[in-house]
Simulated assay, not measured.
Amino acid sequence: MKRVLLGTVAILAFAAPAFAADMPARTYTKAPVYTPPEVIYNWTGFYIGGHLGGAFAGNNSLEGSGGRFMGGVQGGFDYQFATNWVVGAEAQYSWLSNNNSNLVFPGGTVVTAKNNQLGSVTGRLGYTWGPALLYAKGGYAWRDNPNIGVAVAGTPAAFTTDSTHKNGYTVGAGLEYMFAPNWSAKAEYQYYNFGSTTFTGGPAPIVGSRFRDDEHTVKVGVNYRFGWGGPVAAKY
């Protein structure tokens, strides 16, 4: 009996390594690497806001080439489509600080001009990635009466012009960035063109003189977006 037990133990001792070799190797599964969810920004919705900046008249302008402070308000609507594209419309109104331009002609003739308001209604098209939106805009522009005056040796003189040139067009471009839910900030350049003013009557030195009516503006602003703006979903 003892010999039988010893024989059995010997057989098992030799067979165990071979049996272990035939067993499949244990496999290990590595835990997946954590990937944070991607935040999706949605620009669709209404917004209102305000802006500050400066306005600079173009060359040969009645308003002169000096810079003026500007501030105002804007509001509009954006619609995001095809993932990265945004189309919208915006109305904007700006107040300008007074300008004291004096154009001196021969014979002591002086022409002054002043306007204090700019407005626009534009469409805009932009491309967005994450919280940033790069856009271009263009459309209708308006300004208040330029309030032109003519004087000879300090005495007001009668004159006529071809038009008040209160209506024109505007184009511009800017970058807007969502820095918090429902809030965005922007930096923008906008050009306004109202044609040219020609003096058709008045003191002889000014008759036939023609001046451009345009403004170059740069501004920064903040918008509050109602409901839709800001990070609204997480993509895994």
Rank of each mutant, 00 (worst) to 15 (best):
N182D: 08
G64W: 10
N145R: 15
V121F: 14
G76H: 06
T112S: 13
G58E: 09
G126E: 07
V9D: 11
N223M: 08
G138R: 08
R3H: 00
Y177Q: 11
L6K: 02
A157F: 01
K166Q: 15
G71A: 12
S209E: 08
E90P: 00
G45S: 05
D144K: 14
V220E: 07
M178D: 10
P203F: 02
G64S: 13
N182V: 02
V152P: 00
T160C: 03
G49P: 01
G139C: 09
A158N: 12
Y79E: 15
G88C: 03
K235W: 02
T164K: 14
N99G: 14
G66Y: 13
G202R: 05
G72N: 11
G75Y: 06
R26S: 05
Q80F: 03
V73A: 15
M70A: 12
F211Y: 14
L118G: 11
F226I: 14
M178Q: 11
I11D: 15
P203S: 06
G130C: 13
A132T: 14
P131K: 15
A173W: 05
Y236L: 05
A55F: 00
G49N: 07
Y93P: 04
R143H: 11
H165W: 07
D214K: 08
V218R: 00
F179D: 10
Y140L: 15
T155M: 04
N223Y: 04
G108W: 07
G66M: 12
A141F: 10
G229N: 06
M23Q: 04
S120M: 11
E188V: 03
E215M: 12
P36A: 13
F14S: 13
S120A: 14
A132H: 08
Y177N: 10
F194Q: 15
P106Q: 12
T83I: 04
K2Q: 02
V110H: 03
K30P: 01
Y34Q: 10
V121K: 13
M178P: 00
K2Y: 00
Y169G: 14
G227Y: 09
G88F: 02
G76K: 06
F211C: 08
G208H: 00
V220F: 01
D214E: 14
T8H: 05
T112D: 11
A10D: 10
P32L: 04
G195E: 13
L118V: 06
